[in-house]
Design a protein around this nucleic acid. Structure first.
Length: 505
RNA sequence: GAGCCAUUAGCUCAGUCGGUAGAGCACCGGACUUUUAAUCCGGGCGUCCGGGGUUCGAAUCCCCGAUGGCUCACCA
């Protein structure tokens, strides 16, 4: 029978109007049930429901609750029917519990009605807690109410939903049927909460700064561009939190952080999403070394708090987050992993020759500093599996960091590497407005030489520094990558609820 | 942006040499009052990602396109 060829009531037209797609047998059956309920004047969409417990409370507090009446609500995940009785699993935020439904308790009519429920429907029940012969804690249902009819079927109960396209686009299905996905995102929330806890306890103030910038600064990246109609001006989505937070340090917020979204207009990969979450924090009177200590202590605190251990496994590799972590200069790392000594004085052209000799791809705007960085990226990054602070980045790639007092070719900056990936970036913040202006001017030259990601001139920020910023340690951590590490997730899309996807069709 | 791979029922997947599509779960009908991926009997499912081409005949071969995945590039 083709549903579409039957005369339609107004109700049915309403029901089918929402979608032009072909109606599968599954959906047709469910819509027919819905219509029958509406015809009988029953409400398939429920209302407030008073729960006395979550599902897992019943399991965990069985001794206390045995024989008592509880009221639960959740989604029907499985039904095992036995004629005049059925076992049903419902799932709520805490997990699953088994229900037992019998005709002689509910009455024939109510039982028949219960049997017409579908997998995926959301119900509320009242019932008595008991244990089955096999020893499973179960609720004997005395009363059941449909709270939301599901018009679409759930994926396979055993295999779950594997199609990654559907998992990311329709994350809610992924969350319903794949418990490990739900766990990952619960951990994400706990990780973020633990970070706030750690910083708040240390007198840090959490703030919010603009997402739309007139200049996109604070990092080397291309921004997304948008437009303000009333002011008729171009605005950029922020690529970093840095410059506003440092203005706040000037303003006397000596310990300040923001944990929020930044946007970078670049490729998408297992480690990059165009919008991602960063925390940046600034502490007056601290420096790069202070930020190392804070980083290792905070990350190990978070791991302990969320996972109960500092020894974790990431994609088969054992990682020990117990502080202190290894510290190595970028030059020493290149010496160790590439066998190349870049410590001596060297002209830009000599450095570029050396890079060519090692088949490094070079840019015309490059000098010594860029070459050092290129050697590090090519030979060292992927080998830094255990947590390692790599410090002493070249000046040319660090326009916002204080110079190394002993060797002005380098800066007081570190990046944290774990499992071969950058997880954090920190410096002793440059608080000399004259030096900062020169750095920005150098960046402008690079920009003119074709580097689209070189830093822009930010006069307003320099003005702020001219009022005096205390010596400050600053730190940025990529939250998504940290969550990947702590949840053993291979792709950034596994830790972002709704990762960026191309629209379909 | 480039290369490789994938796309078949609601879901997970098979589909041989090119001969017109199958399984399990789910679904539909029936039996079943302590099951655990319940069981037993019976049944149907489809834009084989889309569009073109080759061929007597295409899920299968060729071309173009879409989406996704991986790798690379981009990303200090």
């Amino acid at each position: 029978m083709f549903g579409g060829f039957r005369p339609m009531s107004d109700e049915r037209q309403l029901i089918n109007e929402t979608s032009e797609e072909q109606i599968s047998e599954h959906m047709q059956v469910r819509k027919d049930k819905l219509k029958a309920m509406l015809d009988e004047g029953k409400n398939p969409w429920g209302g407030r429901y008073e729960k006395t417990h979550d599902n897992l409370d019943v399991v965990e507090q069985f001794e206390k609750l045995e024989g008592q009446t509880v009221s639960l609500a959740g989604r029907i995940m499985a039904v095992r029917g036995h004629g005049k009785a059925s076992f049903v699993d419902i799932m709520d935020r805490s997990g699953k519990v088994q229900l037992h439904v019998k005709a002689d308790l509910l009455g024939e009519d109510n039982y028949k009605e219960f049997q017409s429920l579908d997998l995926g429907d959301i119900i509320g029940i009242k019932g008595k807690v008991f244990k089955t012969k096999r020893g499973e804690v179960t609720v004997e249902v005395l009363e059941a109410t449909l709270l939301a009819k599901a018009l679409r079927p759930l994926p396979d109960k055993f295999h779950g939903l594997k199609d990654v396209d559907t998992r990311y686009r329709q994350r809610y299905i992924d969350l319903i049927v794949n418990p490990e996905v739900r766990d990952t995102f619960i951990k994400r929330t706990k990780i973020i909460k633990a970070i706030r806890e750690y910083l708040d306890e240390r007198g840090y103030l959490e703030v919010e700064t603009p997402v739309m910038h007139t200049l996109a600064g604070g990092a080397a990246a291309r921004p997304f561009i948008t437009h303000h109609n009333a002011l008729d001006m171009t605005l950029y989505l922020r690529i970093a939190l840095e410059l506003h937070l440092k203005r706040l340090v000037v303003g006397g917020f000596e310990r300040v952080y923001e944990m929020s979204r930044v946007f970078r207009n670049e490729g998408i990969s297992t480690r990059h999403n165009p919008e991602f979450t960063m925390i940046e924090l600034y502490e007056a009177y601290s420096d790069m070394k202070g930020m190392m200590e804070l980083t290792e202590n905070m990350v190990s605190y978070v791991a302990e708090k969320v996972l109960g251990t500092q020894k974790i496994n990431y994609q088969g590799q054992e990682i020990d987050l117990t502080p202190p972590w290894r510290r190595i200069s970028m030059i020493d790392a290149i010496k160790e992993y590439a066998g190349i000594d870049l410590s001596g004085q060297m002209s830009d052209s000599e450095a570029l020759e050396l890079a060519k000799a090692h088949n490094l791809e070079i840019e015309p705007s490059w000098g010594y500093g860029h070459v050092v960085n290129a050697f590090f990226e090519k030979y060292c990054e992927e080998k830094l599996i255990q947590p390692t602070f790599v410090f002493g980045h070249p000046l040319a790639i660090s326009p916002l960091a204080k110079k190394d007092e002993k060797d002005p070719r380098f800066t007081q900056r570190f990046e944290l590497f774990i499992v071969g990936r950058e997880h954090a970036n920190a410096f002793s913040e440059l608080n000399d407005p004259i030096d900062q202006k020169e750095r920005f001017l150098d960046q402008l030259k690079e920009r003119e030489a074709g580097n689209e990601e070189a830093h822009v001139m930010d006069d307003d920020f320099i003005t702020a520094l001219e009022y005096g910023m205390p010596p400050t340690g600053g730190l940025g951590i990529g939250i998504d990558r940290l969550v990947m590490l702590l949840t053993d997730s291979p792709s950034i899309r596994d830790v972002i609820l709704f990762p960026h996807m191309r629209p379909r069709e």
